[in-house]
């Protein structure tokens, strides 16, 4: 479906989500938190049945989390269109209702974002670690507070040993 056509359709069906075109075939909706579940149900009834990813981004400067549900479709008329449902929530209380009853695929995606960013999805029964080791006792790794650089520095220190060896050889 053409972008403008779909935009018009969404404006009539979901008037309070302020839809906009990001670039070709990518539409962005910004519903209120209370309307998230209704928005998702409406999108499913419109034919957006293939949840492709959930991306949560940490913005410590503004103290917010951005939730981005990226939804595609396997219906013939909507195959090229991608809908992004975007929410911004305060960092102190990042709790959203689950959408697993709309798209069952959300169970695993929400579980991934839970373990990587510590955000909660109310109503998802499987909020436990998927990829992280069971003895992980640090903060969720994809938060911007979690710094990776220190491990790189440790690696460098180890590398210095090798350089010493080379210099030692050169003396002979």
């Amino acid at each position: 479906m053409k972008d403008e056509e779909l935009l018009g359709l969404i404006q009539t069906k979901l008037p309070d989500t302020t839809p906009s075109i990001v670039y070709s075939h990518r539409l962005k909706l910004k519903p209120y938190l209370e309307k998230l579940h209704d928005t998702c149900s409406t999108l499913l009834s419109m034919g957006f049945d293939h949840l492709q990813t959930i991306c949560v981004t940490d913005y410590p400067q503004t103290g917010e989390f951005e939730f981005n549900y990226i939804i595609g479709s396997v219906q013939d008329s909507l195959k090229e269109n991608i809908i992004m449902v975007v929410l911004r929530l305060p960092r102190a209380r990042p709790i959203v209702p689950t959408v697993k009853d709309v798209w069952p695929a959300a169970v695993q995606l929400e579980r991934e974002e839970f373990e990587m960013l510590g955000v909660r999805f109310e109503g998802n029964p499987e909020l436990k670690f998927l990829y992280l080791p069971e003895d992980w006792n640090e903060i969720p790794p994809l938060l911007k507070d979690y710094k990776l650089k220190r491990w790189v520095d440790e690696e460098r220190d180890r590398h210095d040993l090798v350089i010493e060896r080379v210099e030692h050889e050169r003396e002979h």
Binding site: R91, A92, R120, F129, L143
Partner: peptide, 17 residues
């Protein structure tokens, strides 16, 4: 650091037993 950034050991209990 906000509350959600700290790991919650209760969350893990019972998951991998």
């Amino acid at each position: 650091m906000s509350a959600n950034t700290e790991s919650n050991p209760e969350m893990l209990a019972g998951v991998f037993q």
